[in-house]
């Protein structure tokens, strides 16, 4: 009887320890899929959008466009918008904008995508180095408006992205390194046919 009780407790403990990881795994892999062509852009003008473009190349996406600062017209030809969130003083300066106008612009871009029913993937793939007052303003303003979040672990040390995901019921995937985004992109942008990956 006592042995059965021990086994039951051990089983319960095992389930309790495994479930959170299992829950995240399910959330990350099977419930989201998106269509191409993809528009990759930056809100905050950090180099993260360029990193996302390289990741899209590595993932073998067949149809994507990278625009560091996209226009409303760029959004209209896309079926998915990937917005990389992160402020860079140098990047904003290079684009000739300040943080307020960048956030206002990001909101306009997101609103236009929603109007056209284009899903938005928000990414933070630069980690904790791209967290700070300016980046956080962008994250708080725009991440809740997205349909899917891909976030580097180290950017979520304070649980900001977990909170946004939970409160707004947005699926989220955490990655350890930026290159871990490659298999996720391959999964959420399934190739319709084998030829899709090499059409050109």
């Amino acid at each position: 009887m006592r042995r059965a009780l021990y086994l039951l407790v051990a089983f319960g403990l095992g389930v309790a320890l495994t479930l959170p990881a299992f829950a995240q795994e399910v959330q990350t892999t099977s419930i989201v899929s998106f269509e191409q062509p993809v528009l990759i852009t930056s809100i905050g003008q950090s180099a993260g959008a360029m990193m996302a473009m390289v990741l899209a190349q590595k993932a073998g996406l067949s149809s994507f466009v990278y625009k560091q600062r996209a226009s409303l017209k760029d959004v209209e030809v896309a079926k998915t918008l990937i917005a990389v969130l992160g402020a860079s003083g140098k990047g904003l300066g290079a684009a000739g904008v300040d943080i307020d106008s960048e956030i206002a612009w990001g909101k306009k871009l997101f609103a236009h995508a929603k109007e056209l029913k284009i899903p938005i993937i928000a990414m933070q793939i630069e980690g904790e180095v791209r967290r700070g007052p300016m980046s956080d303003r962008i994250i708080n303003a725009l991440a809740p408006q997205s349909d899917y979040l891909i976030v580097k672990d180290s950017a979520n040390k304070d649980g900001l992205f977990t909170k946004i995901s939970t409160e707004n019921k947005i699926p989220i995937t955490f990655v350890k390194t930026a290159l871990d985004v490659v298999p996720i992109l391959q999964e959420i942008f399934p190739a319709k046919e084998k030829g899709d990956m090499n059409n050109g």
């Binding site: 180099a47 990047g91 630069e126």
Partner: peptide, 9 residues
């Protein structure tokens, strides 16, 4: 882990 930046014009 490095921080990537681009040059300001």
């Amino acid at each position: 882990s490095i921080k990537l930046e681009t040059a300001r014009k």
